[in-house]
Amino acid sequence: MMDSVTSMTFIIALYIFMLAAFTGYVVISRVPSILHTPLMSGSNFIHGIVVVGALDALFNATTLTGQIIGFVGVFLGAGNVMGGYVVTDRMLAMFRPSQKQTPEKKGQP
């Protein structure tokens, strides 16, 4: 998989990058400022997908160095995923409209 890179796939990669960049821009451009922090955290969670690449690298490791670096990569990536999810979820769980009028008190400081 890693060596199947030709000039054509590079051009396709540039297309993917361009379309993805526009997508990210459009999705975020109308966000109210109250959601800036949760959204930063949410996008932080999404780039945690790097753990998938790290897993592939670790599965294909043949040397001890490769295994160590792969292990570190998977650990860091998994942390990115889980931490990003938990923090975002906690922040977003607090947004609720006034009709419900806070039935229970969550997370006392």
Partner: peptide, 16 residues
């Protein structure tokens, strides 16, 4: 890595 999912997710977050 030749993994389009990483490319898309990464670049979406990069621009956002």
């Amino acid at each position: 890595m030749g993994n389009p999912a990483l490319m898309i997710a990464g670049m979406v977050v990069g621009s956002a």
